[in-house]
């Protein structure tokens, strides 16, 4: 993921007075203006439909609703204060916890999977990584629905666990926090596998052999050689999973119950059932703030890593 854009500063130098023919600016022979015309439509489109609309969300979060429930602009801090209300605060803390746990679980799953596929799959490597990526493009809802059927109270997974004595009749997955996290993990684990896989592919396998000589056991080699060498891929994966997990509302709906709702569900509720758009906007801003913080932390870390690497 290219999170930073290289900013080039070079600009064509202005044409100077040529051959004594006055100071009239000369048309550029190289004609670089076309690139501006190509950039403009997309930039204007994104500015209007994306940047301006985000600013609108920010503005509305200071607004109020009229008697009809329609949003009004304003300078009201009530919505932002409401975020501190325990009812909302708890949901936000829960969302944060779920998203973090999801990232960690994805990391724990993705490491062995990426390791096995990148380093031990031989010529099936590409086929396997495609097999991981392709279902991700299948409809999210349908996948989530299938997952919820699989984990349902009398679904195959619990039946199997009961048969081997790992679960009793009261064990549930759906309608628990674990169920929601399972949904998030299922939804976004691919975002962790791809960067980790890429990092392991780049890794010099001689490192592992050297690690074997140095540390002996495969576990120690993995911990002391593979993990540090792929740290940046893991960090990118953490962010890539955390961002969508934090904003998700489908998993909590399909896999959880009323006590597992996340911030996304609150936002959805304010916009579609509660008709309190200013409060919904404030919640959206809160969500965005958390994500920007996560993003910022990630960028600072990678900067530091790079700075150390070049030292």
């Amino acid at each position: 993921m290219a999170l930073r854009t290289p900013v080039r500063t070079e600009r064509p130098a202005p044409a100077k007075n040529v051959g004594g023919r006055g100071r009239r600016p000369r048309p550029s022979a190289a004609g670089a203006r076309i690139w501006t015309w190509l950039t403009l439509p997309g930039t204007v489109w994104m500015s209007v439909f994306f940047i301006a609309s985000l600013l609108l969300v920010a503005a509305i979060s200071f607004g109020t609703t009229d008697q009809l429930g329609d949003p009004r602009f304003g300078t009201d801090l009530g919505n932002l204060k409401a975020l501190a209300d325990p009812a909302y605060r708890d949901v936000m803390v829960r969302s944060l916890g779920y998203a973090l746990l999801t990232s960690v679980i994805c990391l724990l799953i993705a490491y062995p999977v990426a390791y096995a596929v990148a380093l031990h799959a031989g010529r099936f490597k590409n086929a396997l990584i495609a097999a991981i990526v392709v279902p991700f493009f299948a409809n999210y809802l349908v996948r989530m629905y299938g997952w919820s059927v699989l984990l349902s109270d009398d679904g195959p997974v619990l039946q199997l666990l009961r048969a081997v004595g790992l679960a009793d009749d009261h064990t549930k997955i759906l309608n628990t926090g674990f169920g929601v996290i399972a949904g998030l993990v299922y939804g976004f684990v691919v975002f962790m596998i791809i960067p980790l896989y890429a990092a392991m592919e780049r890794m010099d396998t001689a490192l592992i052999e050297a690690g074997r000589d140095l540390y002996g056991g495969p576990l120690r080699t993995f911990l002391f050689v593979t993990v540090p060498a792929t740290r940046q891929g893991a960090a990118a994966g953490m962010v890539l999973v955390f961002l969508p997990a934090m904003g998700d509302f489908v998993s909590a709906q399909f896999m959880g119950g009323p006590n597992q709702i996340m911030i996304g569900n609150l936002i959805q509720d304010k916009f579609f059932e509660g008709q309190d758009w200013p409060l919904g906007s404030a919640l959206t801003m809160a969500l965005m703030a958390v994500l920007l913080l996560a993003m910022f932390g990630y960028l600072r870390r990678t900067r530091k890593d790079e700075a150390e690497a070049t030292r």
Binding site: A2, M46, S53, L56, V57, L243, P244, G247, L287
Partner: peptide, 21 residues
Amino acid sequence: LIMMVPLITPEIVTGVASLLL
């Protein structure tokens, strides 16, 4: 810069923003 922002914005935020616009 602005073309990178949607990639790190959760869809629900984009959805809310579009709806408001």
